[in-house]
Nucleic acid binder design. Sequence first.
RNA 1: GCCCGCUUGGCGGAAUUGGUAGACGCAACGGACUUAAAAUCCGUUGUUCGAAAGGACGUCCCGGUUCGAGUCCGGGAGCGGGCACCA
Length: 858
Amino acid sequence: MTSESKTDRYNVKETETKWQTFWEEKECFHAKVDPAKPKYYVLEMFPYPSGRIHMGHVRNYTMGDVIARYKRASGFNVLHPMGWDAFGMPAENAAMEHDVHPDKWTYENIATMRSQLKKMGLALDWSKELATCHPGYYLNEQKIFLKLLENDLVYRRRSSVNWDPIDNTVLANEQVIDGLGWRSGAPVERKELDQWFFRITDFSEDLLESLKELKRWPAKVRVMQENWIGRSEGMKIWFEMEGRDDRLQVFTTRHDTIFGATFCAISAEHPLSTDLANKDDGLKTFIAECKAIGTTEAALEKAEKKGYDTGVRAKHPLIPGKTIPIYVANFVLMDYGTGAIYGCPAHDQRDLDFARKYELDVIPVVIPPEADPKEFHVDNVAFTDDGPHANSDFLNGLTLSDAKEAAARALEKTGVGRRETNYRLRDWGISRQRYWGCPIPIINCPNCGPVPVPEEELPVRLPEDVDFTSRGNPLEQHPTWKLVSCPKCGTGAERETDTLDTFVESSWYFARFCSPRAETPVDQKAIEYWMPVDQYIGGVEHAILHLLYARFFTRAMKKCGFLDIEEPFAGLFTQGMVCHETYRSEDGEWLTPSQIETSNNGVAKSFVDGKPVKVGRSEKMSKSKKNVVDPEDIIETFGADTARWFMLSDSPPERDLEWTDAGVAGAWRFVNKLWRLVAKNAAIPKPPKPEVFDKNLRATRQQIHITIDGVTQDLEGFHFNRSVARIYELVNTLSNIKAKDPSGLWVLHEGLENLVRLIGPMMPHLAEELWQKLGNDIPLTESSWPKADKDLMAQETVTLAVQIKGKLKTTIEAPHDVDQKKVETMALSEPAVAAAMEGKNITRIIYIPNKVINIVYG
RNA sequence: GCCCGCUUGGCGGAAUUGGUAGACGCAACGGACUUAAAAUCCGUUGUUCGAAAGGACGUCCCGGUUCGAGUCCGGGAGCGGGCACCA
């Protein structure tokens, strides 16, 4: 007890509060446009204000903060803002469940989370804080929307939603569980509504091509977006139909297989399906069945592939007199291509499964190179490789690409086909039948149709007096809000009651951060200086939708003259999740980690009732599985620096992190170890620099400078865990400096000063405190990043591996860059090598300087 | 179902371009200090055979390329992310 005197133990609370206050009062992190300085914009994906911050936030913001502080020390003018992605469903759910207004709920959550984030000691510019649910934000979003509308980037069409027939409510995909509504339990139907869309597909090619330029994005994210956009070159082909005047338009990428076409399939939502269903009750029933599947691609793909023969037959475009059946099929998407396909079962697995099920013909038109055209047939595995064509008239013998070309020409010549590039990407549906979102600034007039709300009447504010007890969209239920007169003709009209998808807010907030209080959506001067974001950091789960929407929106804003860049994020880093073991009681109830006691023999018991607990594998921290640790508890007990350090140690940032008590304890021990090491030695003044250093001290200095260099490179490359390991090694070395003569003391001080500067971005409070202890008047936050002395880093000798036939025999010490002859002599005279080589004939020696020498014998 | 990842000791991980696998941390064990405990410090720790010296095996599995493979290629398994209304 008494040995734990004031000098031994680090007073975390006092110190962290001290420096947080200091940074705030001095406005250290307020960013101002300064064209004389190079800028650096660091941004972490802003949080949804769900209530309290979680470990995922701590990890995300710690990483961003390390970059922000490191770049700042390296001389950049850093913008590092924070805000709230404040619109969304949870606020409405809270309103329904706890009778609290979404506005109140959201702002209270923001207040809580802001104070929690402030305790993390982040180098944030809080003066730029914004919340997307604030009218100051959504006013500008409405302005952008209207500009987009003017520029023909917005349109309205019918599109389906998940409809709960009991609650009379549109459901999010998340609210559909196994095809049933989450509250009512009723089977969910697809229902068509008039909805607004952004023309993201206008930019398909550009969004795809520009991915190549995003050099500082993870390759996997670029690949995912590439596949998502899904460019494919193919043909539109028109099939005439027996007994009908219209033609069926299909899209295919395998027009070389046209002679193998044995059926056509159309989507249940295809106009032809609707038309035919009028006279066919069986088809009507089948279409209803299709619409019960749901709207997600996964549900459609997993559903059993089914079809319904419409009885209408399509005429083959190249074989006179041949007709094939037209089916309505549940796996054909109306939104992709033309909503109609032709099937060539022999060369497409899904078509083949379908053909076998409905006993349709299977005609092979491509055969394996060595196969006999007369013998080859397809059973239950489609042949999808390249090969000579057969049973295909003028295509016979041609390879896949030649056959495609020839078929395309023939189809174009007769006017029944046209080459076309198609994209899997669909236009972005932005209508949401919900209250807590940005109102769409449109008035629907019975005479004029949709009319923009005049700019001087913006923002269209959300009404506050809303009722969440009835189901459906509160805006639509509101007695007066929607009743207005048409701005054009003055007759009675209705406001658009749909609100915008919350992805719209997150598609431009990064631009708004540059000038969050500007009267226009963005301020030119600010945006030109700060944009693009130099480093964006967030979860991989956003790899496609959010990031693609933001890329589109930036282009759309450019087209409307708001800004002059295409790509919002020059650098992207996607971090892993924070996981924890899961615990269940004997009766299967989930338990929180704080309810668990683990005894010395490793048996886990419930802290509450002493009963044994089943320890499950580690999973992403989630409320539902209760495997959560509250960051605030950790910060209260161990301080922000400990939490931050733990987040950065061990796990590579792109991978999942396993949260363990032992790991936190280790980080906490290290914080104290550092404090003791520096506090103890800072008391002894630094002597003048000596002329010479002995061998050990030279090695220590070498390590100090290698560490500076290594940590710098690690931070640049997002390898925080590696820099942590280097810092541990340096601390071990510095702790072991025995000689306290002037030269030893000088080196110790050199090491400590640099050490403190290196930990600055990771443990800013402790680093500031130690920096002050070392006698510095200028705060660390205003000090520059250390520079490694390359001369001191040079290695005098290296350890070489000596291998025989690739197997390690021994190692030898040799001068750096020594030539091969000398190494050979040294290696062969090693006893272990000599013994192993006795009587053997050397056939080859491979020498990789400073790494390895490999002796190969006959 | 489709697209994209990941898999290395008891555990988290390191190994910059194909060149000494296991750095660093955690846990465990042994020791020092202490009346005792905590804290701290020192040491051992991939598996296996061996008293030791030393040997063999070893990076999810199977196969290949190479003087040499955790790293490259082909096939497979398990786990995770996304699939357009969760954010």
